[in-house]
Nucleic acid binder design. Structure first.
Lengths: 226, 226
DNA sequence: CGCATACGTTACCGACCGGTAACAGCCGCG
DNA sequence: CGCGGCTGTTACCGGTCGGTAACGTATGCG
């Protein structure tokens, strides 16, 4: 609830030897790895090297902690999003590819467990949960940004392309939970993105002037897995 | 565990006034609507009009019930899958479209909550859960069948097309949970399927377009490739 | 020094969890 | 009739859940 402000105005550095920060990091990790409902506050406090009482001195309730973890995840994602598209300003197609690779590397990496926001959407079905709105707003913004990128890239149907990209993104994160390692359908998700881009975007790219479907996979995949 | 066979050889009709069947139906509904971990055996028994003791007379444990619900869901899905592609034998492209529409209508309909198997994959993270293997096998089979259909349709890269279709399918089910009603990205998922099919399949769409009055969206590729 | 912040510790609460024991009634069927 | 399945009912178990009270202590700072 209340923000614990140090009286000496210590600006709360990122390292965070403070109990609250340790609890926060531990909670995010446990929620992500084992699921939100599967982790109790006792396990969080114990994992953070403290006890339940210190937990409730820093957070009003478990639901509030969950919502705050989700908000932190959203901020982190947007940071990575902005950082990934910044070097390719003026090249929307490259931005789409980059943002897709960036998102995939976060949610579909070797030790990843999918998208923490999507997973939370499955676990938190009650509409009144404080984390529910965080998830909805985040997903709506993802959709909005993908559509905007598709429009900037000159897509023949920006809404359709943006939505298709979002479906691929969500599907990649989801299949990551079921298929072990990197052997699942995500090995072909970047190829699908390129195919969609080739289909919806004007063929202004001289390098990709070849046929849309066939040769795209092997070349792009080699680049992606490197 | 053991199949309760009526001594009078009543063949256990589908209606199921039996307690076990009522519990089973109630459990599937509650698990799907509210999530597996969010529903206790008390709520299931009470929702089925009975009590917890009768629950444990029919099912060994909650985890076993969960696994059995997932198995029933898998069987039901394959039934619909087979029934949906049967009328279009010999037209693999139409089969892909139909199976996609069928799956979407089950998991992304007005009152749907996504794919129950995918949702269970998020909720049941422990690998030793009896339902875990059911989910993995089902998803692996979905992938295998989609790739087979892509190969039958003569895709230039059957694995890539099949995987891309699967990602769209999973993404559609997942976004259904976050975006209310039919306003989410799933409105464009069928369009994405058609775009992918047009990109990966040989251009034999003249005959299909003439016969199928269904999609008005497959004309988009003409604009994209021109 | 005294005071406040931050944290650890122990014990506790009511509620619910999954799961069980014991008993009583109903009903079909020999 | 009596027997055996199926069901309803009540009570109970140990454990865990989210959450709280009370007390002790270390540190920092005026």
């Amino acid at each position: 609830m209340k923000e614990a402000k140090s009286p000496s105005a210590a600006p709360c550095p990122e390292g965070g030897t403070r109990v609250r920060d340790r609890i926060f990091r531990t909670a995010r990790e446990l929620f992500y790895r084992q699921g939100i409902r599967a982790v109790g506050v006792d396990a969080i406090a114990c994992g953070a090297g403290t006890n339940k009482m210190s937990f409730y001195r820093s957070f009003g309730s478990k639901d509030e902690l969950v919502a705050e973890c989700l908000r932190a995840q959203v901020s982190e994602f947007w940071e990575h999003w902005d950082a990934s598209i910044a070097p390719h300003a003026g090249d929307p197609r490259r931005q789409i590819e980059t943002v897709f690779e960036s998102s995939m590397s976060k949610s579909c990496g070797a030790d990843a467990c999918g998208c923490p926001l999507s997973n939370a959407a499955v676990e938190l079905r009650e509409a009144e949960h404080p984390g529910h709105q965080v998830i909805r707003e985040y997903k709506a913004e993802v959709r909005r940004r993908l559509r905007a990128l598709a429009r900037d890239a000159g897509a023949s149907d920006a809404e359709a392309l943006g939505d298709a990209l979002m479906l691929l993104l969500e599907g990649s994160a989801m299949t990551r939970l079921t298929f072990a390692g990197n052997g699942g359908p995500i090995v072909n998700s970047l190829g699908a993105v390129h195919t969609l881009l080739d289909a919806y975007l004007p063929a202004r790219k001289a390098a990709a002037a070849a046929k849309a479907a066939k040769p795209a996979k092997s070349a792009r995949l080699a680049k992606a897995t490197s």
